[in-house]
């Protein structure tokens, strides 16, 4: 356990600059988008007042942070999309960076006196930590954005906004930060399953090289088919299906559990017995 935590820390430590860069970029882009949006709104109101001499409240609705988030959702989504892309790439790199280059850290990691599974779980949880830190930071940015918006908007023209509403003004957050925790659980559960399958495929490649690429793709494809099979065969638009909803659900859960167990087992087995530097 101690060794696992040390390795986890080491993995987080190695990624820290990229992680901070993503956090910084997200903050910069999103907060600028909010600020520019607020300034634009204020300017529109001032221009109206200058041209007509009438109070802008007559013509414009009160300024709302939620609406600002809705209007700037493209700029909110850009750093989020970039972060996702970086993390997906890093899910590969977290393994391959130890095998390739001037320094092959894999030699060291594989000859540590602790269990090799610690290396596997450290890399897995490191990726998850990055994901949840970025998501957590996104949540933190929302009230900060609201404060920035409130500083720019005149107090008498500002309408109160709720963070949860502002989050839902953005289409991307509907998937990343769904309203119900159950949905959050399902979305990220599927993400974690994909990551486990990816790790198993990477380790297949690392163990069998060229042939391993074929094995890896086959394994990933097989898992994908297995996962969507109940959705296609037992669920959707199939009111007369043989299985009841709860049975279809149980089958799906069993398949998911099977993929989790088999992917983790395969990954650990390969790392312990088959992988080579």
């Amino acid at each position: 356990m101690r060794n696992y935590l040390k390795l986890l820390h080491m993995e987080i430590h190695r990624f820290r600059y990229i992680l901070f860069a993503l956090i910084g970029l997200t903050a910069l882009v999103q907060m600028c988008a909010i600020a520019f949006n607020a300034i634009g709104e204020v300017n529109k109101r001032n221009a109206y007042f200058e041209q007509t001499g009438r109070a802008p409240e007559e013509f414009f609705a009160a300024m709302s942070y939620t609406r600002a988030v809705q209007e700037t959702q493209f700029w909110f989504a850009v750093p989020v999309g970039l972060s996702i892309a970086v993390l997906v790439i890093y899910a590969f790199l977290i393994w391959y960076r130890d095998w390739f280059g001037r320094s092959t850290f894999a030699y060291r990691l594989l000859s540590l006196p602790s269990e090799r599974r610690n290396v596997y779980f450290a890399k897995l949880t490191a990726i998850l930590t990055f994901v949840f830190v970025l998501i957590g930071f996104q949540l933190l940015l929302m009230p900060i954005g609201r404060a920035i918006f409130a500083m720019i908007a005149p107090a008498d023209q500002l309408q109160p906004s709720y963070i949860a509403d502002a989050i839902f003004a953005n289409q991307v957050f509907k998937i990343l930060l769904p309203r119900s925790f159950a949905e959050f659980f399902v979305n990220y559960g599927l993400g974690i399953i994909s990551l486990l399958v990816l790790f198993a495929s990477i380790l297949l490649e690392r163990s069998y090289r060229w042939l391993g690429i074929v094995y890896g793709l086959a394994y990933a494809g097989f898992c994908a088919l297995l996962m969507v099979y109940p959705l296609l065969a037992l669920g959707r638009n199939y009111s007369a299906g043989y299985f009841y909803t709860e049975e279809a659900y149980a089958i799906q859960m069993a398949i998911d559990a099977l993929i989790v167990v088999s992917s983790v087992w395969l990954g650990l087995h390969l790392l312990k017995k088959k992988v080579s530097v």
Binding site: H9, T129, V133, I135
Partner: peptide, 28 residues
């Protein structure tokens, strides 16, 4: 002390997401 970064990040992620779902997501 040298593990502070990891611990802080872990606590932050759990705290932030936990607070979001614990405080309710229905907004106004």
């Amino acid at each position: 002390k040298r593990y502070l970064l990891s611990m802080a990040l872990g606590v932050f992620a759990v705290g932030s997401i936990g607070a979001y779902y614990a405080s309710g997501t229905e907004g106004d």
